[in-house]
């Protein structure tokens, strides 16, 4: 077992366990922490897969932006206690069963695949910033610009929804 393999297994183990803990923790704060670790381990995967740029972006976006957003909201709403009631037992069992079925079906369906690595692969550094940048601003220029609309929408929307109402009466 090479080092890489050990890394892979270790990271995968951490990822899955942390994800599971995220799901199972009663306290949302703990969930968030586990999620953070989970994201970090995924970042490790990215490194392992030679996607250096994505590694960085991932850390920034998820660990930096998204997790902060989550935690802020949690704090804002003062939900850091174990307030969450469980769903009724039947719903939880249903949830577990359904998810397990989905997982099993997905895994068994995927296991039918016969992906074999092509021989000539692995020569170019596809994850390098330079390479990605070129692609992003050439081929994917339009989606790249277009995604700004998405972000703009989200921004405007978030503001629209969260802004406190000022009483305006026009009659």
């Amino acid at each position: 077992m090479s080092l890489v393999e050990i890394c892979f297994w270790a990271l995968s183990f951490v990822t899955l366990v942390c994800a599971l803990m995220t799901v199972l923790s009663k306290n949302p704060i703990f969930s968030a922490i586990y999620l953070l670790i989970c994201f970090a381990s995924i970042a490790g995967h990215y490194l392992l897969l030679n996607a250096q740029f994505l590694f960085i972006v991932h850390i920034i976006v998820y660990s930096g932006a998204i997790m902060v957003l989550f935690l802020t909201t949690l704090m804002l709403m003062n939900l850091n206690e174990e307030t969450e009631k469980h769903k009724p037992a039947i719903a939880r069992i249903g949830a577990v069963v359904a998810a397990c079925i989905l997982g099993l079906v997905l895994v068994s369906a995927i296991s039918k695949t016969a992906l074999v690595l092509p021989q000539n692969s692995g020569a170019v550094d596809i994850g390098a910033i330079k390479v990605l940048g070129k692609i992003l601003l050439n081929e994917y220029f339009y989606p790249f610009e277009f995604i700004s609309i998405l972000l703009l929408t989200a921004m405007v929307g978030a503001v629209l929804l969260t802004k406190k109402e000022h009483k305006i009466t026009i009659k």
Binding site: A98, A99, I101, L102, V105, S108, A109
Partner: peptide, 13 residues
Amino acid sequence: VLGIASILAYVFL
């Protein structure tokens, strides 16, 4: 989820 699972199961299993 059940729908997805059963569709996948029907198609692939």
